[in-house]
């Protein structure tokens, strides 16, 4: 069981809460308390809009333990409107082929079980194509 680890990250996972640098206004996700742009301390919380575009993507057919029930699924690098790139699954895809540059939006979805179906359900951000 990894309850504490998932619990600690819930704000980031559920609603893309990152940070903004008070010195240079750089938006930071995942939060790291030190601005990667100017190197100063950056602990001010910032909730991202969840809007972005596909920077790269691929499909996973053979999933690692814990994700097999959802395979095949698509993972992507998503460039958020506010700047950062994050790694996330794309969900709700239909026959429309994914392409680099497609606009996407954040949704909160089930990621996996912590352990098996007796464990907690881990929820977090995924992205779907924006219409």
């Amino acid at each position: 069981m990894e309850i504490p680890r998932h619990w600690r990250l819930k704000q980031q996972r559920y609603s893309l809460v990152g940070e903004v640098c008070p010195h240079c206004d750089h938006k930071i996700f995942p939060p790291r308390d030190i601005c990667p742009n100017c190197g100063d301390e950056a602990k001010e919380l910032f909730t991202f809009s969840g809007k972005g575009e596909v920077y790269s993507y691929t499909k996973i057919y053979e999933a690692p333990t814990g994700f097999d029930a959802n395979a095949p699924y698509t993972v992507a690098l998503v460039k958020l409107e506010e700047g950062p790139i994050i790694t996330a699954q794309l969900t709700d895809l239909d026959s429309t082929p994914v392409e680099i540059g497609m606009p996407v939006e954040m949704v909160t979805r089930k990621m996996r079980n912590d352990g098996d179906e007796r464990g907690i359900i881990v929820y977090g951000y995924k992205f779907r194509l924006r219409t």
Partner: peptide, 17 residues
């Protein structure tokens, strides 16, 4: 990894880009 990412998929993302 929490996104169900594998090292192969990570390399694929890089290669695709």
């Amino acid at each position: 990894a929490v996104q169900g990412m594998t090292l192969a998929a990570q390399a694929a993302l890089l290669m695709k880009r």
